[in-house]
Design a protein around this nucleic acid. Structure first.
Length: 273
DNA sequence: AACTATACCTGCAAGC
DNA sequence: TGCTTGCAGGTATAGT
């Protein structure tokens, strides 16, 4: 479900409710997520700690605690995090409930591809996974110059290149399709065949599409909601994703669908070359 | 090393 | 109505 704009939206909608609040208890109902949820880690490092900051890194949500431990969340395909102010019944597939002074935070994930991990104090920098991740696309250091070397070396289709978190983080299947339409680049083009001008355009389009989606509060196709249960609206701006057979907004040619490494791929065969 | 295919899991919609 | 099939926003890993 969630790519960078959805996680960013979740983070900012959750922040006002839980920043500087203390976690009083954690209930774990299901430990079989992408990685085992370790109850002992919550007892040792999370209970009675305050949340001193919330951040997004790639598609991960991070809670920094007063003791310098970190709680890492990933929503997988179907994860949701919601804040509740009244004692509310637990929905099906709600696996973990955080009790705070002022509210409850529910983690729900039917498909269980998501993740909740506790990183003990001062170990985040060494946490496997984050150190080998690529650049944040909305940061100033994500530039044509920064990616030129990696893109020139890669034979893989450009769509798979931009979805590879070692190159750039946060771009999943929806936004990869939309970015390549915006850049007028065919998704199957081997990455190294992009000209300098196309690489420049690609960087511009990645930033533009993601920023625009963040402003719209993400994309709600079926079930994405922010922490307060509000949907996003970027689905109204989608140009190609799930538009098979519909006319391209630029030239009127029918949008095509293919599969690339098992993922649905949408493009205008006339505009994208 | 680089790249592809598959596995992980549940829900839902479409087709029969 | 009820069954089967295929597909869904992500990532790790086994295989070529």
């Amino acid at each position: 479900m969630p790519e960078l704009p959805e996680v960013e939206t979740l983070c900012s909608s959750l922040k006002p409710h839980i920043l500087n609040r203390r976690i009083t208890a954690v209930d774990i109902f299901e430990t079989r997520l992408r990685k085992e949820v370790v109850e002992h880690d919550f007892v040792q490092w999370v209970i009675d700690q305050s949340i001193t900051s919330l951040d997004r890194r790639a598609k991960y949500l991070l809670w920094q605690l007063g003791n310098e431990a970190t709680v890492v969340f990933h929503l997988g395909m179907s994860g949701r995090i919601g804040v509740f102010f009244n004692p509310s019944s637990r929905e099906k597939h709600t696996h973990v409930v955080f009790h705070l002074e002022n509210c409850q935070v529910h983690f729900r994930d039917p498909r269980r591809f998501g993740l909740i991990q506790v990183i003990p104090p001062h170990q985040f920098a060494r946490y496997a996974g984050f150190e080998k991740m690529g650049l944040e696309p909305l940061s100033a250091d994500f530039s044509t110059a920064a990616i030129a070397g990696r893109i020139e070396k890669s034979q893989k289709p450009i769509k798979l290149w931009i979805m590879d978190a070692q190159n750039v983080v946060g771009v999943g299947n929806i936004y990869a399709n939309e970015v390549l339409f915006d850049a007028r680049i065919h998704p199957m083009r081997p990455a190294h065949t992009l000209s300098a001008a196309e690489r420049e355009q690609l960087v511009t389009s990645i930033k533009r599409i993601l920023e625009s989606a963040v402003k719209r509060g993400g994309t709600t196709l079926n079930d994405f909601r922010d922490a307060e249960g509000e949907p996003g609206f970027f689905q109204m701006d989608l140009q190609v994703y799930q538009k098979t057979g519909q006319p391209c907004g630029v030239c009127g040619t029918e949008i095509q669908k293919n599969f690339l490494s098992g993922r649905s791929t949408f493009y205008c065969p006339n505009c994208q070359v």
